[in-house]
Design a protein around this nucleic acid. Sequence first.
DNA 1: CAATTTTTGATGTACGTAAATCAAAAATGT
DNA 2: ACATTTTTGATTTACGTACATCAAAAATTG
Lengths: 345, 345
Amino acid sequence: MRPTVHDVAAKAGVSLATVDRVLNNRPGVRSVTRDRVERAIATLGYVRDVAAANLAKGRNYPFVFILPEGDNSFMRGLEGEVRAAMARSASERTQITLLPVPAFDAQVLVQALSEAHESRPAGVAVVAVDAPEVAEAVKRLRDDGIAVVTLVSDLPGSGRDHFAGVDNIAAGRTAGTLMGRFTGGRDGSVAVLAGSMLVRDHRDRLEGFSAVMAEEFPARRLLPVIEGQDDPVLVEKLVRALVEREPDLAGIYSLGAGNRGLVAALEKTGNSKTICTIAHELTPHSRAALRSGTIDAVLNQDAGHEVRSAIRVLKAKADGLAVIEAQERIRIDIFLKDNLPIEQA
Amino acid sequence: MRPTVHDVAAKAGVSLATVDRVLNNRPGVRSVTRDRVERAIATLGYVRDVAAANLAKGRNYPFVFILPEGDNSFMRGLEGEVRAAMARSASERTQITLLPVPAFDAQVLVQALSEAHESRPAGVAVVAVDAPEVAEAVKRLRDDGIAVVTLVSDLPGSGRDHFAGVDNIAAGRTAGTLMGRFTGGRDGSVAVLAGSMLVRDHRDRLEGFSAVMAEEFPARRLLPVIEGQDDPVLVEKLVRALVEREPDLAGIYSLGAGNRGLVAALEKTGNSKTICTIAHELTPHSRAALRSGTIDAVLNQDAGHEVRSAIRVLKAKADGLAVIEAQERIRIDIFLKDNLPIEQA
DNA sequence: CAATTTTTGATGTACGTAAATCAAAAATGT
DNA sequence: ACATTTTTGATTTACGTACATCAAAAATTG
């Protein structure tokens, strides 16, 4: 049988109350006695039954998740994962409030952060917009003892406790290697399609991609970056113009969202098979395009992992515990049509 | 506040005992009363506090994990994950026994299974050897009400409850697509290096790989399969002979273990950069070879995921609960040198 | 050595559920 | 209407920990 506090008390020759004082760092224990108890804990291999402890404490964790609104498939998937976490809140003793804000709007985000602040949560997770006033708002939360985790998009210099997202420079590098090798058999240039260079993730991905192309595939000509504002209609127009302008196009790296327009342009102009296309985020659209062969590879960050990691980290920070950073690192998944995961409800 | 059994009893106008009878499917409740209670549960949104329930039940899950011995890096990593799960056993109410057996020996595995049987565990996880007598032993366990999950290597027709491993046909297909596209720029043949065709995983991977090569890259010549018995020394010899025999070799797909010999042969003969090499399982060796460029891509199954999934499934089966198969599906990870996860301790 | 402070013990209640017992009430069959 | 069976209620104990209270013992101080 697993040892309990009673066993520890008996082994150490002290009362239950003393063991409790040691375990919960309460005052009023001589260091000699403390040592005796700790030795007993060590020899018995006692570990606190967390379930029973939480039950007794009635501990719960009120968290606020701030996510961008809009029809971005990835963000909607992320919201779905947060809602799934809310459904689990009973067993995880969390109490999650979802706070939607317009995308890419620093001012509104600052307001949302102070609104979250007023509800006095134990922690806040936020998809950050990279602006100094947002960083200030995050600082205020932290100064008030509220844990803050950035989600998907980071905010360096804000003093946030943790970033739950992928290394986007590495993601760009991975795309570069795939692009270079997939187009190895042919000539032609490569285009990069971004959402906006004002967003940190996109800048990082471009940096990684360009670096690998320059280092390892210097013969390949890189066209100037096209910014599609993650807008399917605009993207489609831009891509149509691109393929007309560049009959010799070997590949397109789409590092932002709004891939519907990209796919539409490629399929309507009959270029879906000839141009090597690499995109980000596995959504119903990108999945279909991958399966049909219009997209050749998708780099993905698992939104479910990110949300669950954010919650684990927020809990740990709220309890003042350490986080094993390596364990919370989010992987970059590569999907080809052959290793697509089964579609979930 | 979250509703409790007391609230449900009050709402339904019945006693605590009746609510308990409904919740735990105990007999002696009229269906009208049962309905009343269930309506109360629904309207209040009551969810059982699993922590409290487990505490009250004092439930624990004795499991046996049967793994092959030997210096196979992947298997040692798997063992490490099982030990990590043993360390968590306190909080997860599991009680895991590790049973090592010589690799690829059906007879010994049967003995190990009956030894496990005698300890009367709630469940058994086993890296299966594909043999009828093993299937028989698994059947005996299941007939005795013990849940059985196959790990990494499946055993169809044994009636096992679940397989915690990857779809190896899909893995082979993925390797095929990568090989075809990575070698797109050049002529030359492709070789396949297996451990043994007696093992199910290897057969499946070959099947998937060959299918994609035939369907999508019919011009590429596939050499006859080389069997290296997962033995580094033998593999090195065979690969050396191969590269001498086939000066025009474009790629090698190594679908088994023992990649140290492969890497050594390629590096010593100076072919490490010219031949496209795709291998399985991310180990310290394959990681180093990936980083140095000797291996171009590694397909991986996450041993940690597999072990945790196996435990979740064993628990569910032991409690007679349903498993959401889609949620327990193990993904095939693709690693390039650019998206390697940080090295863990 | 007495007075004071600090440390320890003993005990009880709480958390939300499980499980058992015994008595009471209601439904069923004849 | 009676006996019998089934259903329900009331109550208690337990799981392992947290936390509070009050008394007792030990250590420290003057």
